[in-house]
């Protein structure tokens, strides 16, 4: 069965007829071609498919598209503006928070969700917020440093 779903994706209003069983991950990647959101474990265990729904991190592989009708969905593609990386993206770039890069979109969206509710998180708070996101390359140290760098005041002092 299909139903008409209205939602906003990266600030743009959309209205699409989607099957009831269409996952948000597949809607983003296959219908809207927003392939920045990655399919990892595909079962809710790795966090690679994390997007923001109404500003909060959600696993798009465990979310039905029809369940986010009327909501605001944001993907990794929404962060860069006019070709300029967001502060968080730039921090991942400079602090080597990405190695193979596959977990990075999910990692950044989970971190983005954290920074919107807590502009100056401690290391423990960063680790807790990213606990559902797996990275097999970095050992997480550079990822946590990247998030710290993104929220550091200009004098460079970070919370520990």
């Amino acid at each position: 069965m299909k139903s008409l779903v209205r939602l906003r994706v990266n600030g743009i209003a959309r209205e699409d007829a989607v099957p009831d069983n269409l996952l948000l991950l597949d809607y983003l990647r296959e219908t809207l071609y927003l392939t920045g959101t990655k399919q990892g474990c595909d079962g809710g265990e790795c966090g690679a498919c994390t997007v923001l729904v109404d500003g909060k991190p959600r696993l798009s592989c465990l979310t039905l598209t029809a369940a986010v009708a009327g909501r605001e969905v944001e993907t990794i593609e929404s962060l860069a503006r006019n070709g300029r990386l967001s502060r968080l993206q730039q921090a991942f770039h400079e602090k080597l928070g990405a190695q193979c890069g596959y977990c990075t979109p999910g990692m950044i969206m989970a971190a983005e969700g954290l920074l919107r509710k807590n502009a100056s998180p401690s290391v423990a708070e960063i680790r807790a917020a990213l606990a559902g996101n797996l990275c097999r390359c970095t050992g997480y140290v550079k990822i946590v440093e990247s998030v710290q760098a993104a929220c550091a005041p200009p004098n460079g002092v970070t919370r520990t």
Binding site: G44, G47, T50, K56, P57, R58, L59, L62, T63, A110, A128, A129, A131, G132, N133
Partner: peptide
């Protein structure tokens, strides 16, 4: 229970 994104829903 599970991770933060699970607990949110």
């Amino acid at each position: 229970v599970a991770g933060p994104t699970h607990r949110a829903v």
